[in-house]
Simulated scan of single mutants.
Amino acid sequence: MSAQNSAGIQTLLDAEREASKIVQKAREYRTKKVREARDEAKNEIEAYRAKKEAEFKKFEAEHTQGNKAAQDEADKEAEAKIREIKAAGKKSQGKVADDLLDAVFRVNPVPPV
Score class of each variant (00 low, 15 high):
72 D>M: 08
42 K>S: 03
78 A>G: 09
25 K>A: 12
81 K>E: 06
106 R>L: 09
44 E>N: 09
54 A>W: 08
93 Q>I: 06
60 E>L: 06
70 A>W: 10
94 G>V: 04
52 K>W: 04
75 D>A: 12
19 A>N: 04
86 K>W: 11
69 A>D: 12
101 L>W: 13
52 K>L: 07
30 R>N: 12
70 A>P: 05
87 A>E: 13
19 A>I: 13
102 D>G: 00
34 V>Q: 00
36 E>A: 01
42 K>M: 07
55 E>P: 01
13 L>F: 07
65 Q>W: 08
100 L>R: 03
97 A>Y: 06
61 A>W: 15
113 V>L: 02
49 R>P: 00
113 V>N: 06
8 G>E: 13
7 A>R: 05
92 S>E: 15
96 V>W: 11
73 E>H: 05
27 R>V: 09
41 A>V: 01
111 P>F: 04
28 E>V: 00
21 K>V: 10
75 D>E: 14
92 S>V: 08
104 V>K: 10
60 E>C: 06
91 K>A: 02
71 Q>S: 07
79 E>S: 05
102 D>E: 15
52 K>G: 02
17 R>D: 08
61 A>T: 09
19 A>T: 15
68 K>L: 08
13 L>R: 14
71 Q>N: 02
31 T>S: 12
78 A>E: 02
58 K>G: 01
2 S>I: 14
22 I>K: 01
66 G>F: 04
26 A>H: 03
5 N>G: 07
28 E>I: 04
99 D>G: 02
97 A>L: 13
39 D>W: 03
35 R>T: 09
86 K>D: 11
101 L>E: 04
87 A>D: 15
6 S>R: 13
30 R>H: 10
22 I>R: 10
40 E>D: 15
72 D>N: 15
49 R>L: 00
37 A>T: 05
70 A>S: 10
103 A>L: 00
23 V>E: 12
3 A>Y: 08
70 A>K: 13
19 A>P: 00
86 K>P: 00
59 F>K: 10
9 I>S: 10
1 M>E: 09
33 K>L: 11
102 D>L: 03
111 P>L: 05
85 I>D: 06
84 E>Q: 05
103 A>M: 07
31 T>N: 15
108 N>I: 07
7 A>Q: 06
9 I>R: 01
46 E>P: 05
90 K>C: 09
40 E>H: 09
66 G>K: 11
38 R>Y: 08
81 K>G: 04
22 I>F: 02
